[in-house]
Amino acid sequence: MYAFTYHRATGLRHAANLLEKLEDPKILAGGQTLLPTMKQRLASPTNLIDLDKVEGMSEITAAGRSVTIGALTRHNDVHKSPIVQQAIPALAYLAGLIGDPAVRHRGTIGGSVANNDPNADYPAACLALGATIVTNKRKIAADEFFKGLFETALEPNEIITKITFPVPKKAGYYKFRNQASRFALVGVFVAKRPSEIRVAVTGAGSSGVFRVPSFEEALKKRFSPKSLEGLTIPADGMASDIHGSAEYRAHLVNVCARRAVAAADEKTPAE
């Protein structure tokens, strides 16, 4: 790790002020991605602003037809939340698949979404559920938020404060793990919303999370795994590495999508 100056933010405004005025700053939320990156000397912020002691940013609330999750909510708390389990069980299920139990005790939803790792789970949920990412400055629709590998619409001085998820009629997530990292080699989140059906894919794409319009069309006719049988997506645009070719990933998108739809149809998401 390179040397840096440490700042303990006492509140959101304090953090925002520090972010505004310090040179080359970086926000530390749960640190489960940032710290390993810094340890490998792949990130070298001059100033690190730790949000750990900031209060009021890890609440989960339900209002009308949506669930709002504070940006500093740990993955395990999303997973265990009765509100999330009741309103969007697939999201609670997804949170329980991130990293491992110890990572879920530290990692936060805001940190994960802001990082936009192409193999992370949350981006698929945000995109499929049509979430709104709320920052200290504005609200950003998930559709506009994820911009590619580790790229988001966030401005340098912006901090995610919470994320609002509209409650779908049904939703399901299926994660196919990379055997080494245990990140998603392919993860598909399927949401049947009042107005539309969305299929969002993480892990597979060479430029981050994406939707599959052809699958959405097919599911609109009938929300069943059968509707997706025989459908393919092109291998172009899929990532390819030692863990799987673009063709394999493209194939898995279909498999995972069918299994996600099946899970959405079950009362409790598949284990």
Binding site: Y6, G31, L35, N76, D100, H105, R106
Partner: peptide
Amino acid sequence: TSQCGACVVHVNGKAVKSCTML
């Protein structure tokens, strides 16, 4: 890379990887 778990301790009662926390 925060994967092996040899460093797990409890912080405020919860298991945490102490190699991935300042």
